[in-house]
């Protein structure tokens, strides 16, 4: 098993966190993983992306030039990375923010209205968790509960009350691709 993912969106959408949670969950499940962020003179509203690799074997290069899955939260990210996806791979599109369709015919496309679904849960901030849930519903590479364990480590016990909302968001996302 080897999954090479690119998460992309604009700063503030939580794309780096999505990748970090996936990487941490992979580690907890005994997999090898790497998380590489784009970093630069970036600001809220600018572009942000990270590459996450999950593997049963030791990971040589942490760089992802041809992802097996692309997860995009805004339109410029789709336009930037669509061509890089490996044939047979998949693209997860935040259809709340992206009003175009995937042009490629050799990849699977999933459209997830992340912002609307997050609003249904009463908190726009969990749009990224909806999307992460959708990706996990498809790839099943790690368990949703392991992701929540990683999230709890990140938040600390003081913010543990946010876990149920995030669980709901992940499950709602996962339900979108079933």
């Amino acid at each position: 098993m080897i999954e090479k993912n690119i998460f992309a969106g604009f700063g503030g959408q939580g794309v780096l966190l999505m990748g970090q949670l996936l990487a941490a969950a992979a580690m907890h499940e005994g997999k090898h993983t790497t998380w590489v962020p784009s970093y630069g003179p970036e600001m809220r509203g600018g572009t942000a992306n990270c590459s996450v690799i999950l593997s049963d074997k030791e990971i040589d290069s942490p760089m992802v030039t041809r992802p097996t899955a692309l997860i995009v939260m805004n339109r410029p990210s789709l336009e930037k990375f669509e061509d890089t996806v490996l044939p047979g791979g998949s693209i997860f599109v935040n259809s709340s923010m992206i009003d175009v369709k995937v042009q490629r015919t050799d990849v699977k496309a999933y459209y997830v209205p992340c912002n609307e679904l997050a609003a249904e849960l009463g908190n726009n901030k969990v749009a990224n968790m909806i999307m992460l849930g959708a990706y996990l519903g498809y790839s099943k590479c790690v368990d949703i509960e392991t992701v929540l364990k990683a999230l709890l480590e990140k938040l600390g016990e003081r913010k543990a009350k946010l876990i149920p909302l995030n669980r709901e968001a992940l499950l709602k996302g996962a339900a979108c691709v079933k």
Binding site: H32, T33, T34, W35, V36, P37, Y39, P62
Partner: peptide, 10 residues
Amino acid sequence: DGLIGQMMEP
């Protein structure tokens, strides 16, 4: 290099 500094691994 900056990549070793910024990336995450277990």
